[in-house]
């Protein structure tokens, strides 16, 4: 069973998050600030932290920063009242993995927790499973029903990225920045060419399909 640590100073909210997560089958501990969270982490292992930003004693940014400085890569979902772009930037810079803006929809929170845990596992194992399809990061190989196919690196990265977040739309520019690098001179249409090849290679795969959102980008659907 996955263990989740919640740092939130409002007791009603903390209880709410605990209830929802316990209902979804997680083991949960609630604490009321960043310092208490660090103390709890010293005593026991947790798989994920849900943290508020504005808390007394030690706030969420500081909590995440001190975790990352200590080399702890535990996934952190921050919950914040601030929706200003700048605050998000500070959050990601200090090392948070995902964020939600209050008022938080608890059903969505459960989904995000699941996705974060899945992603942490994908990162740890360097492989990803969708239905009967397995993608292995180190060998750039995709296995489907006993058949294996080695993909060129960039093609694999595009597919792997989309498959890590099924249903999420990625723009061409995002692929260019993440896979080709910010300095790349290549045209964004290069992405279209790679997607075309991927589509062709997996046209008989029933586990996922690559969907085009015209003028915006691509996503993988299960």
């Amino acid at each position: 069973m996955f263990k989740i640590l919640i740092a939130e100073d409002d007791s009603d909210l903390r209880e709410l998050f605990k209830k929802v997560l316990i209902q979804s089958g997680y083991a949960v501990l609630g604490v009321s600030n960043g310092q208490e969270a660090l103390d709890a982490l010293d005593k026991e292992y947790y798989d994920l932290i849900i943290s508020d930003i504005m808390m007394p004693v030690m706030d969420g940014y500081e909590l995440v920063r001190s975790l990352r400085e200590a080399g702890n890569n535990i996934p952190v979902l921050t919950i914040t009242a601030k929706d200003a772009f700048d605050d998000m930037r500070i959050g990601f810079l200090s090392g948070m993995d995902d964020y939600m803006v209050k008022p938080v929809n608890v059903n969505e929170m459960v989904l995000r927790v699941g996705a974060l845990l899945r992603r942490a596992q994908i990162i740890n194992e360097r492989r990803l499973v969708i239905g009967n399809t397995v993608m292995e990061c180190d060998s750039l190989t995709v296995h489907t029903n006993g058949e294996s196919m080695v993909l060129p690196q960039k093609e694999f990265m595009i597919l792997y990225k989309m498959a890590s977040f099924p249903g999420k739309i990625f723009t061409r520019q995002q692929f260019m920045d993440d896979i080709w690098g910010y300095e790349s001179e290549s045209d964004t249409h290069t992405v279209d060419v790679h997607i075309g090849r991927l589509r062709d290679k997996f046209k008989n795969n029933n586990d996922f399909k690559i969907v085009t959102i015209r003028g915006i980008g691509y996503k993988v659907e299960k």
């Binding site: 409002d10 709410l16 008022p103 938080v104």
Partner: peptide, 13 residues
């Protein structure tokens, strides 16, 4: 927003 989240959360439950 904190109390609103609590209201919305418990209503969702």
């Amino acid at each position: 927003k904190t109390p609103i989240t609590a209201i919305e959360g418990y209503a969702t439950l």
